[in-house]
Design a protein around this nucleic acid. Structure first.
Lengths: 208, 208
DNA sequence: TCGTGTCTTTACCAAATGGTAAAATTTAAT
DNA sequence: ATTAAATTTTACCATTTGGTAAAGACACGA
């Protein structure tokens, strides 16, 4: 029986694994720079070095590629937040989180833009994941941070907005790169400056 | 001679003014929520209550509507930055700027998202305006802030990244509303919390 | 009210785009 | 080597979408 591998759940062949990876890589490139509607299967196919029908042999449609990508990268994206250790030194943990997020924005700007695009459009294909995936983790870490504040180890502020501000300031360097690159053209200086500034900003906020 | 008013530069009639406004309003709604490629002339037409050909009577094409919108709103968007008074009290000026930007994000989320969409895609239709419009103003205000720091009236930090962090944290509430609304559903609490937090964040940073 | 120019609608079109059918080719186990 | 299954290509198709032509409706000054 000849059936598309996109529905089959049996062991994927070497070719299948290679091509699905190829497609998802290409899709990340295209979706992150063009948005969901701006991206075309032809662009993804060309970027992947495959034909359009070939791509539809591995995925049931454009939407499935996009959703697969979002699901797959969600884990990577939330990892730094999970890694915060409730028993570590609060300032170290939070400043460390800031640095890890900034590193991710610099090293994985496509992933950042992929999510930014999706959220900007109202998260039409990710809404459930926000409630089911992000929200619980968010609430959990809010509690951790609140405890840290109550223990007096860091200054009191609103933990939720603290996280928002960390996300906003770090992802800004990926999502608004077209702007920051015009305003601060020297890449190395910009990245070093960002690190130093965010360190200072959040250290001052958190130090009791 | 019958000619489209989009090329004519003569005094626009009452109807012309009304309909161009109607179209630009509709276009703001659609472009900001769907992005440039995601927006269709049919959507804009429906939103404006006009027919598609009628819309193309007033504008020469989709791109012209978009560019007109960007140009028109650029002024409004940069206004708060211009308003910073070099002779005022530095902390008051900067904190005031933060509050004005946050108010704009809350009151004009569509404008914020319109620009966010455009920058995210690499500013393909706005690139020149960044260099020609924003850059000079940015550089000028960097100098003002630098002087404030040198005078000892505010703590030293990187002025460019200070502005980036103000933009990032305030616009976050408009651009990532789909996310913040899931994580902090109570609108009033969210907005009040944002104001208080950003006030605290930047006051701590700037106080010498 | 008449006529000229302004505005709107109807009826289209060509290109782009997501997707499919089925033939052709390649892979791999026997 | 043979063959059955997996993979890729070729040739399409229906819909959507930005855009146009031209006829029709309307406004308004003389």
């Amino acid at each position: 029986m000849t059936e598309s591998p996109s529905t089959t759940k049996k062991a994927p062949s070497r070719i299948q694994q290679r091509n699905r990876t190829l497609i998802l890589d290409a899709a990340l490139e295209v979706f992150s720079s063009q948005g969901y509607r701006g991206a075309t299967l032809d662009q993804i196919a060309k970027q992947a070095g495959l034909s359009k029908p070939n791509i539809l042999y591995y995925f049931n449609g454009k939407q499935e590629i996009h959703v697969t990508l979002l699901n797959q990268l969600m884990t990577v994206w939330l990892d730094p937040l999970k890694e915060m250790n409730p028993n570590g030194d609060p300032i170290k943990e939070l400043i460390g989180y800031v640095h890890r997020k900034l590193d991710m924005a610099i090293e994985l700007p496509r992933e950042s833009r992929l999510f930014a695009n999706e959220i900007l459009q109202g998260a039409p294909r990710m809404g459930p994941h926000l409630s089911a995936g992000l929200k619980p983790l968010f609430d959990k870490q809010i509690i951790v941070i609140t405890r840290w504040m109550e223990s007096g180890k860091i200054a009191r502020s609103d933990p939720a907005h603290l996280l928002f501000s960390i996300w906003a300031t770090t992802q800004h360097y990926a999502d608004f790169a077209a702007q920051t690159e015009v305003l601060l053209p020297d890449r190395q200086a910009r990245e070093d400056g960002a690190r130093a500034f965010l360190d200072q900003l959040f250290t001052k906020l958190l130090t009791p």
